[in-house]
């Protein structure tokens, strides 16, 4: 009973906040609705018994991706009047995308009801008393080890690519050398002198 209530609660909030993402006028509000949608999607995952995935969803999407979104959106200099002015211009393109998505959805539901591809028999998971993390770990590091490593290499390449694209060497910049600063002792920097009267001293 409580599961049913929780499911409908989470599902309703996901759909409502996803709708609000595109309806909200202020982009920052849109991002906030998106975060709410992520959060409730994590709730749905919890109900499905995938607590590990649910936590990862919150850590990765809410904790990192959405923060970057928010950063970018907040930095934008938004002119709301201009945003609304472009509405008519982009209407045909938007309508086209919407029609394609709707057609695909109807197509997918139709195909699913026809019962075409038989995936269910292959993907039936064996019920065990192991925890989520152990199960995922065992599969990931044995059966899917090559895919896992391939994913790692793709991410590494992406990271190196991003660093190469944004890295630039600027001349004439004075950079702190922390270890040199820490090695410096008072004796290296100061000198005690006792000049006689009228002699002055050389720096």
């Amino acid at each position: 009973m409580i599961q049913l209530i929780a499911f409908y609660l989470f599902a309703t909030i996901v759909i409502a906040s996803a709708t609000m993402v595109i309806l909200a006028r202020n982009p920052v509000h849109s991002v906030m609705w998106l975060i709410l949608a992520f959060f409730n999607a994590a709730g749905l995952m919890l109900l499905a018994g995938a607590e590990f995935i649910a936590m990862l969803l919150v850590i990765v999407y809410v904790g990192a991706v959405a923060v970057l979104f928010l950063f970018v959106v907040m930095m934008l200099d938004i002119d709301f009047a201009e945003l609304r002015a472009g509405f008519v211009r982009y209407l045909p393109l938007g309508a086209l995308v919407a029609i394609i998505l709707a057609a695909e959805l109807i197509f997918a539901v139709g195909a699913w009801q026809a019962g075409g591809v038989d995936l269910a028999s292959r993907a039936a998971p064996a019920v065990t008393d192991k925890s989520n993390i152990q199960q995922i770990g065992e599969l990931l590091y044995t059966r899917y080890i090559f895919l896992f490593e391939a994913a790692g290499i793709v991410l590494l390449v992406a990271m190196i690519g991003a660093i190469v694209l944004t890295h630039r060497q600027r001349g004439g910049v004075r950079i702190q050398n922390i270890s040199a600063q820490n090695r410096r002792r008072p004796e290296d920097a100061t000198r005690l002198v006792d000049p006689g009267v009228g002699q002055g001293m050389e720096l």
Binding site: F52, M55, G63, V67, F71, N132, I133
Partner: peptide
């Protein structure tokens, strides 16, 4: 829960929103 430590990581990553939103 089994994922207690992950839950703490997840929740502490939410803490940043209060600060960002108040600032903006």
């Amino acid at each position: 829960i089994n994922v207690g430590l992950l839950y703490i990581l997840a929740i502490s990553s939410l803490g940043v929103y209060g600060v960002i939103l108040s600032g903006w």
